[in-house]
């Protein structure tokens, strides 16, 4: 049974048609990348798949049940989202900002236990942020804040992770490191991320979804979808390809 499935999904936002009659099946163990031009609706699609906005047509299934039949809390135990930007207004330590990932599992008046704190610290350790745990998040750099948000997602530890441009603000060392960690943590689960870096996606993902901008889409296994021809259709520019160490690399001609 697919972890996440959509049938005839149709999403429009303003004058943009993100997708029409889109049907996808995403299984445990897969990692998907969604590619598209600016404004093609990658973020909107991620929000829709997380149940944060409703689709115009079609259905989304989480396992065997309609997404909308779950409560917000139940969705949040299974689906985690990394947003493109954060809106932290008030001072908050790195540990506090990571610990909110345990919220889906806590009862109304329950406080975080020692185990919850340990989980958050483990996640911070993985993201190499443990030494910053008492720092105010506003004193961190953009990349460090981004990694804190990812540590929060690791603390939440959902079955499905929807990541909106996870490599934003990260240097290439941290891009590779972070995606390796995510890949490992979500090994038998589902990763779904949006990106602009085709080669990074090609290296880490098993499946791809191209949003062509007029409601049409191309989806499937990554080596069938990410081809010079498809990328030229997607971005509207000439694309070249080179092959090194058995890996295809794409770049604008």
């Amino acid at each position: 049974m697919p972890l996440l499935k959509c049938n005839n999904l149709g999403i429009t936002i303003g004058n943009t048609t993100v997708c029409q009659n889109m049907s996808l099946q995403m299984n445990a163990g897969e990692s998907w990348v969604v590619l598209g031009k600016n404004g093609s609706g990658k973020t909107t699609l991620i929000h829709t798949l997380a149940g944060l906005r409703s689709a115009d047509n079609g259905e989304i299934f989480l396992r065997d049940k309609l997404l909308h039949d779950y409560s917000r809390q139940h969705i949040s135990q299974q689906v985690g989202v990394l947003f493109q930007s954060d809106e932290e207004t008030f001072p908050s330590t790195v540990l506090e900002s990571t610990l909110i990932g345990r919220h889906p599992y806590l009862g109304w008046m329950q406080w975080e236990s020692a185990t919850d704190i340990e989980l958050a610290e483990q996640a911070l350790n993985k993201m190499r942020l443990l030494e910053f745990k008492s720092r105010d998040i506003h004193t961190l750099s953009g990349g460090e804040r981004r990694r804190t948000r990812i540590a929060c997602l690791l603390t939440q530890n959902p079955d499905i992770a929807l990541l909106d441009e996870p490599s934003n603000h990260l240097d290439i060392q941290h891009q590779i490191e972070t995606l390796t960690i995510l890949k490992k943590q979500f090994q038998n689960k589902l990763l779904f991320l949006s990106a602009h870096d085709i080669n990074l996606a090609n290296r880490f993902c098993t499946h791809a979804l191209l949003l062509l901008g007029d409601g049409k889409y191309i989806s499937g296994e990554i080596n069938e979808v990410i081809t010079t021809q498809n990328l030229e259709t997607l971005y509207g520019i000439r694309i070249n390809k080179i092959n090194q160490h058995d890996q295809d690399f794409f770049f604008p001609a």
């Binding site: 944060l52 949040s76 947003f83």
Partner: peptide, 9 residues
Amino acid sequence: MQAAALGVN
């Protein structure tokens, strides 16, 4: 959005 994604109604 962040709150909703973490299960807050």
